[in-house]
């Protein structure tokens, strides 16, 4: 019962997200809009109910199971994207290397600036 009540909350937020997507004409998925609304609701309430925490933990723990059918599709689209695989691989390898490097460099610089800014109350 506890799990089901939390699950109902998640499904209702998903449906609300879909409603916002349709009415506002936003090109964002209903799940994301539902997630944003759920986060804001939790921030306003200031706490998470046990039901909701249990249900979301349950769903998050089987996320891998839920995306597996889509990943299986990768092995059946080889023909459809014939001739694009080299592009995809080069873009992913070089793109990821560049973005990891930039992120780390950016955060190192900002972290250093934060220290110079005189926040003496935080040591780490």
């Amino acid at each position: 019962m506890v799990m089901l009540r939390g699950f109902l909350v998640l499904v209702v937020f998903f449906l609300l997200g879909e409603a916002v997507r349709v009415f506002a004409g936003l090109p964002v998925s209903g799940g994301v809009l539902g997630m944003v609304m759920a986060t804001v609701t939790l921030m306003v309430r200031g706490r998470v109910s046990t039901e909701l925490a249990t249900a979301s933990q349950g769903l998050i723990s089987i996320l891998v199971l839920l995306i597996t059918p889509g990943v299986v599709g990768v092995f059946f689209i080889a023909d459809q994207f014939y001739g694009h695989w080299a592009t995809v691989l080069v873009a992913l390898v070089i793109g990821t290397l560049l973005s990891v490097f930039t992120t780390l460099l950016l955060m190192k610089k900002v972290a250093a600036l934060g220290k110079e800014g005189g926040s003496h109350d935080r040591s780490a």
Binding site: L10, V11, G34, M37, A55, S56, Q57
Partner: peptide, 10 residues
Amino acid sequence: LGPATVALGV
């Protein structure tokens, strides 16, 4: 996956 995405908000 829809409700699971909402669950990431927690």
